[in-house]
C-alpha cells in the first residue's frame, strides 16, 4: 500500500540541474532518411493507385481511394495502439518521454482518423449512394475519433503538468480498451437492422496488382506515420525543454 504520493521535485528550488538527457536537442540524420523513404513510397503509392492498379470492374475509378483509405485506417489504429502502450509505460516507468510519445502519436492518429472518415464518406457516396452508413466499422471509427479528440482536448487543457500527463495516460489506456467492446456492441446493434451494404470487393480473387498496390500503401503510410510522429515528438520535446529553461530562468 502506498502511504504518501511521490512528489516530483519542484524545478528550480534546488541547484539548477542540467536538462534530462532525453530533452537535449540532438540532430538525428535517421529522421531525414525516414522522411525521404516516406516521401518516395507515398509517390510510389500514388503511381500504383492511379496507374499501376487496374480499374475495378464494379466500382470503377472510385475504388482507387481504397489504396489510401485502408492504409490510413491501419495507421490510425496503429497510432492509438502506440498511445496505449506508451501510456502504460509512462505510468509504469514514470519517464516523461513515454508521455511525449503518447501525445505525439495521438495527434497523428487523430489526423489520420479524420482522413479515414472523409475518404470513406467519399467512397460511400459513390458506391452506396450515401455519405454515411451506420455500419459497424464506420461507427466504431467515428467513436474512436471522438475518444481521441477528447484526449487531445484534455491534453490542451492540462498543458504540460504532470498530473495532466497521468490523467491523459489513464484516458489513453481506457480509451483503447473500449474500442473492441465498442466494435462488438455496434456489430450486434447493426445485425438487427436491415443493411444494404455492398460487399467490400471480393478480396479472394483480387488481382496481384491490387494486393501489391495496397501493400505498398500500407508500407508508405506506416513510414509517413513514423516520420510525422517523430516530428511531433521532437516538437513537444522542444516545447518541454523551453518550459524547463523558462522556469529555471524565472527562479534565477
Amino acid at each position: 500500500m502506498q502511504i504518501a504520493s511521490s512528489r516530483p521535485a519542484q524545478p528550480g528550488t534546488a541547484t539548477p540541474t542540467p536538462l534530462p538527457p532525453w530533452l537535449m536537442p540532438v540532430r538525428r540524420y535517421g529522421e531525414y532518411v525516414l522522411g525521404a523513404a516516406a516521401a518516395l513510397s507515398i509517390l510510389a503509392t500514388i503511381w500504383a493507385a492511379f496507374v499501376y492498379a487496374p480499374t475495378d470492374a464494379l466500382q470503377g475509378n472510385v475504388q482507387r481511394i481504397e489504396y489510401f483509405h485502408v492504409p490510413m485506417a491501419w495507421v490510425a489504429y496503429l497510432a492509438f495502439f502506440v498511445v496505449f502502450v506508451a501510456s502504460i509505460l509512462y505510468l509504469w516507468r514514470k519517464n516523461a518521454r513515454w508521455d511525449v510519445l503518447a501525445r505525439a502519436s495521438a495527434e497523428v492518429g487523430t489526423v489520420f482518423t479524420t482522413l479515414v472518415l472523409i475518404t470513406g464518406s467519399l467512397w460511400g457516396r459513390t458506391v452506396w449512394g450515401t455519405w454515411w452508413q451506420w455500419d459497424a466499422r464506420m461507427t466504431t471509427t467515428l467513436i474512436l475519433w471522438f475518444i481521441y479528440v477528447g484526449y487531445l482536448l484534455l491534453r490542451s487543457y492540462t498543458g504540460l503538468s504532470e498530473g495532466g500527463a497521468r490523467a491523459a495516460a489513464v484516458l489513453g489506456i481506457i480509451g483503447f480498451i473500449d474500442v473492441p467492446i465498442n466494435y462488438l456492441s455496434v456489430t450486434w446493434w447493426r445485425t438487427l437492422h436491415p443493411s444494404y451494404q455492398v460487399p467490400l470487393g471480393s478480396e479472394a480473387q483480387a488481382p496481384a496488382s491490387v494486393v501489391l498496390a495496397l501493400m505498398l500503401g500500407l508500407l508508405a503510410f506506416t513510414l509517413l506515420y513514423a516520420f510525422l510522429t517523430v516530428q511531433v515528438y521532437r516538437l513537444n520535446k522542444i516545447q518541454r525543454a523551453a518550459q524547463v529553461l523558462r522556469v529555471r530562468a524565472e527562479m534565477e
Partner: peptide, 24 residues
C-alpha cells in the same frame, strides 16, 4: 470526473470524454 477535474473546464470536458466510451 477525476480526470476532468485536473482541468479548468471540467463540466464541459466530462461528457466529451465520457459519452464516446459509454456507447457500448
Amino acid at each position: 470526473s477525476a480526470i476532468a477535474a485536473n482541468t479548468q473546464a471540467r463540466e464541459v470536458l466530462l461528457p466529451l470524454l465520457l459519452f464516446p466510451l459509454l456507447v457500448p
